[in-house]
Design a protein around this nucleic acid. Structure first.
Lengths: 155, 155
DNA sequence: CCTTGGCTTCGGTCAACACTGAAGCCATAG
DNA sequence: CTATGGCTTCAGTGTTGACCGAAGCCAAGG
């Protein structure tokens, strides 16, 4: 008994969501992201997501709000009391990655301020200095690298 | 009434711990790291940490075990039933950062396997493809950059 | 004005986890 | 062999946060 394409896709969505759950994105939020990346057609209403992902309407609503707010999902409203359509905004995925890199680099501010507190006692500052140098290197290398990132290929 | 150097340092330790708490390191674990980065002398026993950081012996024990296991802290035992000494191993800090970068890059495996599931339907794969390209770029750029990282300056 | 569909809000439940403090466990010294 | 100091383990507590589902709210249509 083999699992069909859709079955394999939902297993993939589950792995996808699991990964981001480890990074703090709620499981249902991750499922929405994974699903919206591969569904056909590309747009879904909240009710459809609720049914497809077997999640309560409340959870879908909360997580969609979060994802729309993060810019990863776009809400399209239509006239005539029709349900809003949600779709992924894959171009904004870079923002997500950038936030990760920023968080990493931002530790430097901590180590720098720590170094300032220790000025006048270089011996004692040795350990912090080693850590500070690592983050200083990251802070000088990562942002320029990120700027050189190629724009996504069209088609 | 000004706050002394030690007072400012413990405020710094608290900010330090708060940052890493957001990344999933327990608050007390973060305090231990911050404290061991700046304390003088550089080595402390579990009992001393417990007193300095006002944390229970159990919490200190659990977190030290975690940090030693992660390689960030080194345990030094001495003969004669003396308390073990703990000190930071600042050189291992790079491991921590590397794990972060690896986690980021590893998303590529997810997007790649998703792309494979969508082969034969390029139209439908468009959204995932854009995301995949981003992670592919990261996977080709970050590891080499990391290798070029300078070794910490000695003194 | 009332109904209807559809999202959002909110109280409640459940699980996970950090933290505590006391009990347990060793290895050495007496 | 017993006492002692010192870490580790463990059961219990409190908190946090995801999730559910029912109630609420809103806009358009009847």
């Amino acid at each position: 008994m083999s699992v069909g394409r859709e079955g394999r896709l939902s297993a993939w969505i589950e792995r996808f969501a699991a990964h981001f759950a480890e990074e703090g994105i709620p499981l249902i939020g991750g499922r929405i992201l994974g699903y919206l990346l591969v569904c056909q057609p590309t747009e879904r209403t909240a009710a459809e997501l609720s049914q497809e992902l077997e999640a309560s309407s409340g959870s879908i609503s909360t997580n969609l709000k979060f994802l729309v707010n993060a810019g990863l999902v776009t809400k399209r409203t239509r006239r005539g009391r029709q349900a809003a359509q949600y779709r992924i905004d894959e171009k904004r995925w870079a923002d997500l990655v950038q936030r990760k890199l920023d968080a990493l680099v931002s530790v430097r501010e901590l180590t720098e301020s720590g170094m300032r507190l220790m000025s006048g006692d270089p011996e004692r500052a040795l350990r912090l200095r080693a850590v500070n140098e690592l983050y200083t290197w990251l802070a000088t290398e990562l942002p320029p690298l990120w700027e050189r990132r190629p724009s996504p290929s069209t088609r």
